[in-house]
Design a protein around this nucleic acid. Structure first.
Lengths: 119, 119
DNA sequence: GTTACTGTATTAAGCATTTAATACAACAAT
DNA sequence: ATTGTTGTATTAAATGCTTAATACAGTAAC
């Protein structure tokens, strides 16, 4: 897979964000089984312990659940997934606007720049 | 000052970003003297060594320069400052749009949401 | 029943960050 | 000359992240 991890935050937290994204956009579908800890560790090229830690965190947040010896599954809670998708978008928007205003850009300038970038 | 530092990235790098922002938006004006390492460390409530490391990084990037025993000053390079301001904005925009598209939002949806948020 | 695969747990080592406690050389003010 | 302020450097300890190397219990397949 050869992901380049940032040096400035723990790999296990980056894994959490990457896998959470796969869940909220449906690449890992609701209720479906995910690969084993060891396979995911190979896939993402990290140590199994690091992957285990990321999976435990996703479990703590409700996005995955483990069945002791049968494997690990994506949550069946569609509501959580959709709420998370909207929550992430809202957080991106608020952060972005705050950052731009801090940098001295007006509301109209922000809108103009986004229209230029997005189209 | 009581800044809440994120636990997920080194404090010295967060200090770099905070102080760089002060420079590019003119809170710390071009050519002006900045407080001493020890005073800044007190102000930001971090260890002097951590502040020293952040200042050394800002120096490496050209935003500050030290005069051995006289103190430390903001660069006089207006061009660097303005280029950095625009570069930061551009990076924010690109990141934001990428993140939103990853989350499944279309260009038009992004623009709509920004207009709602920014106005 | 043996084998292979689950998730989970433990111990140890290496590394970067942070803090603490000093120390030194250069210069300004007195 | 002394005192106080610069930036800078060093050593040590604590902590968290990462990797490595195992180990164990439960289940499915054969």
């Amino acid at each position: 897979m050869s992901i380049v991890f940032s040096q400035n935050s723990p790999i296990y937290l980056q894994l959490v964000e990457i896998m959470k994204l796969k869940i909220v956009i449906g690449v890992w579908p609701v209720g479906e089984k995910v690969n084993s800890v060891r396979d995911l560790a190979l896939l993402f090229e990290v140590n199994p312990n690091t992957m285990q830690r990321a999976l435990a965190e996703l479990e703590r947040q409700g996005f995955l659940y483990a069945e002791r010896t049968a494997g690990r599954y994506v949550t069946k809670d569609q509501q959580l997934i959709e709420d998370t998708r909207h929550g992430m978008a809202e957080a991106y928007i608020v952060d972005f606007c705050e950052n731009m205003k801090e940098l001295g850009y007006s509301k109209d300038q922000i809108i103009d720049l986004i229209i230029k970038e997005a189209k």
